[in-house]
């Protein structure tokens, strides 16, 4: 695969190459100054590179600088990563548990008010997050849920469920009833059908939906900020408190790089998994 790509690249016209490089530059480009900044001690305009690097000052400084700070417990990066993961996983699991049955109904059954129901599904995506956040905070304070993991997980379900339902509904629609009926005719029990027919065929959609939900949850700032009340920090809230000043020092740049890691990892996983599942042995072929 990789060899084929390099071969064909030389056959591209200069124009085609230019566009590819431009796209790559726009995607990778922003990371380069971030990486440099994360290693800098003093980097002022108009110098192209830092005048003093972190490594030069490392021994002399009484406080941990740059990556020493980012990777120390003082930066709270570990705590934030752990929280982001736990919340993201919980949100994904709950979201799937709610959306799988719901998507099945939406894809297969017709009932009165179905189209307006589908319209209302996207409402949480239209209403500004700040409005939802403040309203939820008032309610959650009364319920004693503010500043708790449970409260944040519930809040994260609001913007993730619409996406998940839509994705799974589309997958269910693509999966005809015939497969399940066939299995039933052949004498499979309901459980067997679910386990051996429906779920494997839904798998690419479920994985894509789950990855997407996790990614959305791990990026939600405002709702987490409101409901976490500073007690529960996640990677986005940690990043915000570091860069809200409007400047990016070395430790802030390091935290920014760390915050973008989960997304990159998930992107790689999903690229591989979905390709193999959907196009390797997926349905339709």
């Amino acid at each position: 695969m990789a060899r084929k790509a390099t071969n064909t690249f030389t056959h591209l016209s200069p124009f085609q190459r230019f566009y590819l490089i431009a796209v790559a530059g726009l995607i990778v480009g922003p990371f380069i100054p971030l990486i440099i900044q994360s290693l800098a001690f003093r980097w002022a305009w108009p110098n192209l590179l830092p005048t003093v690097w972190w490594m030069e000052q490392r021994e002399r400084s009484p406080i941990p600088l740059a990556w020493d700070y980012v990777l120390s417990p003082y930066s709270r990066v570990y705590e934030a990563t752990f929280n982001t993961m736990v919340i993201g996983l919980a949100v994904t699991v709950i979201c799937l548990a709610i959306c799988l049955p719901a998507a099945r109904v939406l894809a297969r059954e017709s009932f009165r008010g179905k189209s307006s129901f589908e319209f209302f599904l996207s409402l949480p995506l239209i209403v500004p997050e700040a409005a939802i956040g403040i309203a939820l905070l008032m309610i959650f304070i009364n319920l004693g849920l503010a500043g708790s993991y449970f409260g944040i997980i519930i809040a994260h379900l609001i913007p993730t469920i619409p996406y998940m339902v839509r994705m799974l509904t589309a997958v269910y629609q693509g999966l005809g009833r015939e497969f399940e009926e066939q299995a039933m005719i052949l004498g499979a029990t309901r459980w067997q059908i679910l386990r051996m027919v429906t779920l494997p065929m839904l798998m690419p959609g479920v994985v894509a939906g789950a990855l997407f939900t996790f990614l959305v949850s791990s990026n939600i700032f405002l709702l987490t900020f409101f409901l976490g009340q500073g007690k529960i920090i996640t990677l986005p809230t940690l990043l915000f408190s570091k860069i809200s000043g409007g400047t990016l020092d070395a430790s802030a740049a390091g935290i920014t790089l760390i915050v973008s890691l989960p997304g990159i990892i998930l992107l790689i996983i999903s690229e591989r998994f979905i390709k193999e599942e959907a196009f390797g042995k997926g349905f339709g072929n």
Binding site: R42, A44, W45, G245, G246, T247
Partner: peptide, 13 residues
């Protein structure tokens, strides 16, 4: 808007 922004302007001359 805040101290961090002013610090940046000061550092950058």
């Amino acid at each position: 808007e805040d101290i961090a922004a002013l610090d940046g302007m000061f550092l950058n001359g």
